[in-house]
Simulated assay, not measured.
Amino acid sequence: MVTCPQCQSDDLDLVEKGAGDRRHIRCNACTHSWWRGEDKQPAPKQRDTIDAQRTAFHTAHTLTPARRQSVETLKGQFIADHPVPQPEVAEYWARYQQIFSAEGLQHCDPRALKDFANTETGAHPGNMSVFNTAWNELGDDEAVQRTRGVIGYLLYGPDHVPLEDRLTHLIEGPHALEMRGFKEALLTKVLCIVQPDRFLPILIYSSPNGGGKREIANRVFGLELPPRDRTRWPIGRLITWSNDVLVDHAGPGFEKLQHVSSFLWWAKDQAASGSKVLS
């Protein structure tokens, strides 16, 4: 019980509240007033950093020991029959690594950027009719400037915006640098060329035909990655973090990530055909 420090009366009134748990008290018996409590504000709740969120996503999608053993068995079969990736891809990707450098992007032949969207070497972006129509409607000068802007923002955008979120901005729009049709598949293709040691040439997060990262994760690894329309994670984070999950669970033993993606496509087909290894 709180009493007056002067007369020990408990006939007290609250005059006002201060910061934290500070209170201004007055004694009705002797009119003495005083402050009690501490001027402390509760510490603000810390939001998870993007690194912590990435770790949590990965931790939530781990393999069972039985599935890991099944994947290792399939991997051994695949590597024995498919020891090296397609040789022509390395030369093509080396060319575009130069084109997508900060210097190369500003001075490359505009035709190289349009050709990039319509070439399937090493990665299959699908139907590019929307991009091609937009390019033709805008004309070469405007189209190439927009395409350069999109790629430049993705690869060299402000450091305070994580790559995952720059990817989301460009996919979901509207964005000042938007180029119609240069969305998830082509943006991911850029990343797997520029960062070939991180990104798989699997260009879609989820696909109705079963060819996205989410479907591959399910069929090969038995993982349930979140549906895009029923999760709080933005699409750019789903794309990059699901990529990292696939790469990690595929494990070592492959020549390059292009080799890993070939294995994942093959293993997905094994699962679809009723392979006993993944049953």
Rank of each mutant, 00 (worst) to 15 (best):
D48P: 15
T55A: 14
E91M: 11
D109R: 06
V89A: 15
H24D: 03
E103P: 04
Q69W: 02
S101H: 02
C30E: 10
H107F: 11
W93L: 01
K75R: 11
E38F: 12
Q106V: 06
S70I: 07
G18S: 10
R111H: 05
Q77S: 05
R111K: 11
L74M: 08
I50V: 10
A102R: 12
S33R: 01
Q98W: 14
R68N: 10
E88S: 10
C27W: 06
Y96Q: 03
A43W: 02
T62P: 03
P65D: 12
L14H: 00
H58L: 10
A90Y: 04
D48W: 14
L74I: 09
K40F: 10
Q106E: 15
K45F: 07
K40M: 08
P87G: 00
Q41F: 13
D11C: 08
P44N: 00
D39C: 09
H107D: 08
C30N: 13
L14W: 01
H58D: 10
K17I: 15
E91V: 11
D21S: 05
A52K: 11
S101Y: 01
A80D: 08
K75L: 00
K75D: 06
E88W: 11
F57G: 07
H24C: 08
L63E: 04
W35R: 14
F100K: 01
I79L: 03
P110K: 02
Q86I: 12
D51T: 15
V15Y: 03
F57S: 07
W34F: 15
W35F: 15
D11P: 05
A94K: 05
H61N: 06
E103C: 07
E16T: 10
L113T: 00
E88T: 08
T49R: 05
R68W: 04
R22I: 12
C27H: 13
W34V: 12
Q106H: 13
C108S: 05
D48Q: 15
A43Q: 13
V84S: 09
P65A: 15
Q46G: 03
H82W: 05
H24E: 11
A29W: 03
P85L: 02
P110R: 00
W93H: 04
H32E: 13
Q98N: 11
P87N: 01
L14V: 04
L63F: 06
D39E: 14
T55Q: 15
G37E: 14
D21T: 14
R95V: 05
A66Y: 03
T64R: 09
T73A: 12
F78A: 01
L105C: 03
H24S: 06
Q86L: 14
A80F: 06
D11A: 10
T62M: 02
P83G: 09
E38M: 06
G76S: 07
S70R: 09
F78L: 02
Q69L: 09
P42G: 00
P44W: 00
I99P: 04
R22T: 14
D13E: 14
P83T: 07
Q41W: 13
L14E: 01
P110N: 03
H107M: 06
K45N: 13
T73H: 08
H32P: 03
G18A: 09
T49V: 12
N28S: 10
R68Y: 00
R95Y: 11
Q77I: 06
H32D: 02
R111D: 08
R36N: 03
C27P: 15
V84L: 12
E103F: 12
P42H: 00
K75Q: 07
R67V: 15
Y96H: 04
R23K: 13
E38V: 06
H32C: 09
E91W: 05
E88Q: 14
C27L: 14
D39P: 11
N28V: 13
